[in-house]
Design a protein around this nucleic acid. Structure first.
Length: 483
RNA sequence: GGCGCCGUACCCAAGUGGUAAGGGAGAGGUCUGCAAAACCUUUAUGCGGCGGUUCGAAUCCGCCCGGCGCCUCCA
């Protein structure tokens, strides 16, 4: 099987064939940087990180662009309300760009901890005002947009295909639009490309239509087409942005270029918290910085990848705790494996059919990035690995390394959950700390020989309090840190 | 109201026509001074309910019940 992806545009899984063989252009709607990232961001960007990683693993040359929205995203998508960045800036008495800087850094910090690879380009909307104005001008020239009192709106009645992504018709939208308080728009569902700035507005630029600022949707068209071309392979984002955001992107981009905009639209589903939608108004936002206090970021990543990116995910302490245990099992196996690689010499070849596992994992990932299935195969592999690791046979380091290569490929490169740094500390280059722990282990084992179990258990308990876990086995005592 | 999604064991969660993955929890066992780790066995004749199509359905169709999302801030 080859890679198949679910395309929102056609509502079915399609074979993935990039426009240019061997190369993929991918654009994902990035965060609006007016606050700390939350677990919803984690699901979204871990999902597209998985997609990015698998495309790379599959041998594609990928150009991954993910914007940073630092202007134009209003508190109300019907083109009213305040700019989110400005609102935060006023609240905190900061420059808007200071807000942007703070939360852009915060975003990347959080994503780094989740082992989300950085996009190739992270363009900022404010850095692409000229490009946005260019598209808007071209839309006016072609009759798709009109200027009213210093603002410019897209005329959706001129774009017959408006609604094709979200499956809506113009009639429905007229019925669905709530009462408009502004009368500038010709059609209630028209959307702003450029907004006139009132004098007190902080972020504003000169344009052919006066002083103003760009609408939210236009930035994504401008930045995606600038770096990926007018027609590119993948556009991703949260499912809630299907309408209106992505619908508007299609309209303005295709109207401006006369070409199809995006070949594959990919949307990830959303996070609920304890069964409830996570929303500002509900006050149940879980920021990543808070979540990281309770769980290892990689446990959160593992938890996210244990369900499909197109399925909703319920975030709860119990579910995370269960995921943590499962994750620890995988880590333990990898640690045990790498530990043997370090100490084993010579020996037999471990008889695992690695190609079977590899092909299973490729099949899973080829099927619309089915990470839960891929992880299931990782568990199957781990069970078999553990069986061999505990059967008393001496397996050669070189054959164990071929097993480890599979963990590196899928656990690290593709899924990003089992980093190369996962390693038992009981071997390799020792520092003084390692020497001292080994000394305690030796003392404890001497005590065990003399059946002084009170002393030996005390040593084990005290080390555990310090985050060092001892495990006795036939071959001796290993130790590891808390994961 | 419009559009769409989902309902699989105690919990989480894959599976879209061929006879129910995986993880957690529970029970029993092996190993062990004990513990931990690991392994073995076990836990859904059934996939919300009722009909239908089919040799065969969790998977397709219809109706019903229940939950959720988008249309409004949010990834």
């Amino acid at each position: 099987m080859s890679l198949h992806v679910y395309n929102t545009l056609t509502r079915k899984k399609e074979e993935f064939k990039p426009i240019k063989e061997g190369e993929v252009g991918m654009y994902v709607c990035g965060p609006t940087v007016y606050g700390d990232s939350h677990i919803g961001h984690a699901k979204s960007y871990v999902s597209f990180d998985l997609i990015y990683r698998y495309l790379l693993y599959s041998g594609y040359q990928v150009l991954y662009v993910q914007n940073i929205t630092d202007v134009g995203h209003l508190t109300d998508d019907a083109d009213e309300g305040e700019d989110k960045i400005e609102l935060e800036a006023r609240k905190r008495k900061l420059q808007p760009m200071a807000v942007v800087e703070r939360y852009t850094r915060s975003y990347f910090e959080d994503m780094d901890r989740l082992h989300v690879l950085r996009p190739d380009i992270s363009p900022r909307a404010t850095g692409h005002i000229i490009e946005q104005i260019g598209i808007i001008q071209s839309l006016i020239d072609k009759g798709y947009a009109y200027e009213v009192n210093g603002s410019v709106y897209f005329n959706i009645e001129k774009f017959r295909e408006y609604g094709k992504l979200s499956g809506r018709s113009l009639d429905e939208m007229i019925a669905g639009v709530r009462v408009e308080s502004k009368t500038e728009k010709r059609h209630p569902a028209d959307f702003a490309l450029w907004k006139k700035a009132e004098p007190e507005h902080l972020m504003k630029w000169q344009s052919p239509w006066g002083i103003g600022y760009p609408g939210w949707h236009i930035e994504c068209s401008a930045m995606s087409m600038k770096y990926l071309g007018e027609h590119f392979d993948i556009h991703g984002g949260g499912i809630e942005n299907q309408f209106p955001h992505h619908e508007c992107e299609i309209a303005q981009s295709e109207a401006a270029t006369g070409k199809p905009f995006v070949k594959y639209w990919l949307h990830n589903n959303m996070v609920t918290v304890e069964g409830q939608k996570m929303g500002k108004s509900l006050g149940n936002f879980v920021t990543l910085k808070d979540a990281f206090e309770r769980f290892n970021p990689l446990v959160i990543r593992f938890f996210i990848l244990q369900s499909h990116y197109r399925s909703p995910l319920d975030f709860s302490n119990d579910a995370l705790a269960a995921a943590e245990k499962g994750y620890t099992r995988l880590i333990n196996t990898v640690m045990a494996l790498r530990n043997k690689i370090d100490v084993n010499q010579g020996g037999e070849h471990i008889p695992i059919d690695l190609n079977l596992y590899k092909n299973n994992m490729i099949d899973a990932m080829d099927d619309d990035f089915n990470s839960p299935q891929a992880i299931a195969h990782l568990f199957d592999l781990s069970r078999e690995v553990n069986q061999y690791l505990h059967d008393g046979t001496h397996y050669s380091a070189s054959s164990l390394e071929t097993v480890d290569n599979l963990y590196r490929a899928f656990g690290d490169t593709v899924l990003g959950i089992l980093p190369e740094s996962v390693h038992s500390s009981s071997s390799g280059a020792e520092n003084i700390e390692g020497d001292l722990i080994q000394l305690l282990i030796d003392v404890r084992n001497e005590a065990r020989k003399q059946k002084q179990f009170t002393l030996s258990d005390m040593i084990r308990d005290r080390l555990k309090e310090s985050g060092v876990h001892l495990e006795d086995s036939r071959e001796g005592t290993n130790w590891k840190r808390d994961t």
